[in-house]
Design a binder for these strands. Structure first.
Lengths: 239, 239
DNA sequence: GTACCTATATTGTGATCACATGAGCAAGAG
DNA sequence: CTCTTGCTCATGTGATCACAATATAGGTAC
């Protein structure tokens, strides 16, 4: 139950990539897209069975995700699950994202190719379309593509990894946020401003737009976290 | 050969902590203290033998360290080693440290207990002593204790982990820096200013001192990286 | 001495087994 | 129906084995 559907998530077919890397990519992708809700239990053997591999590479992938705070081991020392977010932690994630991601946008500005900007427009179009049709999955995918297209242009591995790690932690809650608020109340997107800044080569404007974008998104999440019922008030059976 | 000495590094004796955690702590400690030089090869089985455990928990610990960029797998897809630092990467590490660590100092300021400040004074005393006696290991230990005493007071898990990860990447090069410059040319330490700021409860002053401290340390490292010979100019046998 | 080649040893990876521990569920007492 | 008690199953962890790929050592030809 609550079994995560990962079918097709792994790049089947010929590939010299290590199995544990494929497992990691599949899991990370599912987390970033919010396909695995917070507090959702995860089992090594179950995942291994779902992905058609032995538990071994799953262990390594999971160990990596734990190191990135994308998964956690319950204090009771057993049971793997997606971490919950406290208000304190959301505030830290917000601060961190408000630093790295604008930084990445600024670094990317002088390196933006015409082709990359075209891709940004494309992603933003898909985003607006998904938004108006209420397609949460499509929205998240387009938004992720938009942001990481920029970040990959920045040519800054360390910052890129930091951003990815942060998204990994925030991902499972994005779906919760949209479930609470719907896709309608999404913040005024600053993507157009960002694209314009890239075209002008105005790094500081890009930085500012990115910061506003991140801030508003995280503010929504913070609001949801604050106003939600206590996370699991001793819930009984769910039948 | 270049075998890392980890004897006694693992907390022997009774302990319910998982073995792979102990291995991780041992390795992370060795890396942060610069006991394992850059480009030093690391082998799963060798480490396992040195620590008296099976290769299994070592694999998990290493997987974690790879996720933190504290170890790397050579592009040839075999062989584990301590990563080298490029100038570009040092610049990113510097920027990142100049953001998180001052932030942690500012957050810690209102939470600093009298006892913690006393510990800071103690660490700084040890630091000065080690400095005047040319004890590199002692200096690095005292400096680490000083900084992380502050960071642990900040009550900000995410930032704390980020700082630790950054230190993990910088650690192996600190020893190189000291080997090049000696302990004499160490930057004017801003520790006294920081302690004073904590006592006044002046978060912004603490932030500024921390930033200066980090900046000067990383500037030294950057200088060493820039002026060193090419990293491994096709070195032949080492006999 | 130097360059090239072959054989051995060592590496990371994946699978499987064994084990202690805690979760989940069913049955029984009140 | 509620709470307790006991048992069964599933979980994470560690060890060991098997394997393909690579680096390294040793030898040979020049």
């Amino acid at each position: 139950m609550a079994a995560v559907n990962l079918e097709g998530a792994m790049g089947d077919g010929l590939s010299d990539a290590k199995v544990h890397d494929q497992v990691y990519d599949a899991l990370a992708d599912a987390l970033i897209k919010g396909q695995i809700p917070p507090l959702n239990p995860v089992s090594l053997r179950t995942l291994a069975a779902n992905l058609g591999v032995s538990p071994m590479p799953v262990r390594e992938a999971v160990r990596r995700l734990i190191a990135e705070n994308a998964l956690e081991l319950q204090a009771s020392n057993k049971r793997l699950r997606v971490p919950d977010l406290t208000e304190k932690r959301v505030l830290q994630l917000m601060k961190a994202r408000e630093w790295v991601e604008p930084e990445l946008a600024a670094l990317a500005t002088p390196l933006m190719t015409r082709d990359a900007i075209r891709r940004l427009r494309d992603d933003d179009t898909k985003l607006m379309k998904a938004l108006s049709s209420g397609d949460v999955g499509g929205y998240m995918q387009a938004n992720q593509d938009f942001h990481f297209c920029i970040y990959s242009c920045a040519d800054a591995d360390l910052f890129y990894d930091m951003a990815r790690t942060l998204w990994l932690q925030v991902g499972p809650f994005m779906r919760v946020v949209f479930g609470r608020l719907g896709t309608v109340q999404l913040p005024k997107d600053h993507h157009q401003d960002m694209i314009a800044a890239f075209e002008r080569g105005d790094a500081e404007a890009a930085r500012a737009s990115m910061q506003a974008d991140v801030r508003e998104g995280m503010a929504m999440m913070l609001d949801v976290i604050r106003t939600r019922a206590e996370p699991e008030p001793k819930r009984r059976r769910v039948r």
